[in-house]
């Protein structure tokens, strides 16, 4: 990566702190991440309440819907912090695809092997976190799809259902409100398990706190043998 990116040289200064830590997550990303996380939890919970009024009634349907709508708009606005940051930062490479399939598959399977075996033996992750290459291949494809495809789909279907009348023609184009809702629910179903697994995998750093700390402070601790 280092040879690939000449711009990286001039940014060397913030690459490492005196403690040998790497600056992985800049402030906008951290702000976005935690706002997004909180918003998502609220959206998932209100979403469940909206869909399953017959099972429990923590919130009234009306409150649940209104909360869901308002928080959703906050999450959408927040998404643009993320998008704006990456579009106007040279860290955009974090979300770049690996164009060499061979390299990708090799690294991906290596990573899968690590998570299913190596990690328990105390091996070090085959992917070394770098400011310009933050994600391992499995992470990178997951987040590329989630952030640039699944999340926008959820936003768009959500906005359509927020004002059905205004987006009538669009809804008709996609095959009716039932289809839109089904897509919205399917994505919700995906996010339900995704969020749980995401939180669990967050604890799979060298120490359980490693990645959480990284997401709060922005710095990744140097690996200790």
């Amino acid at each position: 990566m280092a040879t690939k990116n000449p711009e990286q040289v001039q940014l060397k200064s913030w690459k490492k702190t005196s403690d040998g830590e790497l600056y992985i997550n800049p402030l906008p990303v951290r702000i976005w991440h935690w706002l997004h996380a909180m918003g998502f939890v609220v959206l998932i919970l209100t979403g469940i309440q909206i869909r399953y009024t017959n099972l429990f009634n923590v919130l009234t349907f009306e409150t649940a819907v209104k909360t869901h709508n308002w928080v959703a708009f906050a999450v959408i606005a927040n998404y643009f912090i993320w998008l704006g940051f990456y579009l106007f930062s040279d860290r955009i490479t974090v979300y770049h695809p690996e164009l060499n399939p061979r390299k990708f598959f090799d690294k991906a399977f290596e990573q899968a092997r690590y998570y299913s075996y190596g990690i328990f033996k105390g091996e070090r992750s085959p992917h070394k976190v770098q400011p310009y290459d933050k994600f391992n291949p499995m992470q990178s494809i997951t987040y590329q799809i989630v952030m640039l495809l699944v999340v926008p789909v959820q936003f768009i279907t959500g906005i359509m259902m927020w004002d059905i009348k205004r987006f009538e023609s669009w809804i008709a184009m996609f095959g009716g409100i039932q289809v839109i809702d089904t897509v919205h629910v399917l994505v919700f179903i995906f996010f339900l398990s995704f969020t749980m697994i995401h939180a669990y995998m967050g604890a799979l750093g060298q120490k359980p706190s490693t990645h959480f700390k990284e997401m709060f402070t922005g710095f990744e601790e140097e690996y200790e043998e």
Binding site: I50, R51, F61, A172, G175, G176, Q178, T182
Partner: peptide, 19 residues
Amino acid sequence: ISEFFAIGGNKNRLLDILV
């Protein structure tokens, strides 16, 4: 009835299973 849907009212059972 693709044009009608009452959230929480109509519930596709398959989706419930998926949830």
